[in-house]
């Protein structure tokens, strides 16, 4: 078995273990007010970070390209209360269009 296969399997099993272990925390710990406040705001911070890294990074670099315009389009669509799929497809169309035109 190649080293690449071993890495694929080991990383996959570890990824499952990471997911599993989060659920094993004792409930009474999670119910402590301070911990509860952290777990409540955690998704907001993680999503904010994911939006930023998906929009403006490439590897270890900050890259501003068509994705930024797409994000703007997504925000406009969200303000117009567009459904989820419309927001996602709209953003993809903007990025694809700008790239096809060679503008970004």
């Amino acid at each position: 078995m190649s080293i690449l296969w071993i890495a694929v399997i080991a990383a996959s099993v570890l990824s499952f273990a990471q997911k599993w272990v989060g659920y094993q925390a004792p409930q009474d710990v999670l119910e402590r007010p301070r911990i509860a406040r952290i777990t409540t705001v955690l998704p907001i911070a993680l999503l904010g970070a994911l939006v930023a890294t998906q929009t403006a990074t490439s590897g270890a670099e900050i890259v501003l390209d068509a994705r930024l315009a797409s994000l703007g389009a997504a925000v406009v669509l969200l303000c117009l209360r567009a459904p989820f799929l419309v927001v996602v497809i709209g953003a993809a169309v903007v990025a694809a269009g700008l790239r096809a035109l060679g503008w970004a």
Binding site: V51, Q54, S70, A73, V87, G90, A92
Partner: peptide, 20 residues
């Protein structure tokens, strides 16, 4: 990325973040 799929991922995350 020519299809804008990378931008779609960012849009999906902001759409999920938005209501919060």
């Amino acid at each position: 990325s020519a299809w804008g799929l990378d931008a779609a991922a960012a849009a999906a995350f902001i759409a999920l973040l938005w209501p919060r």
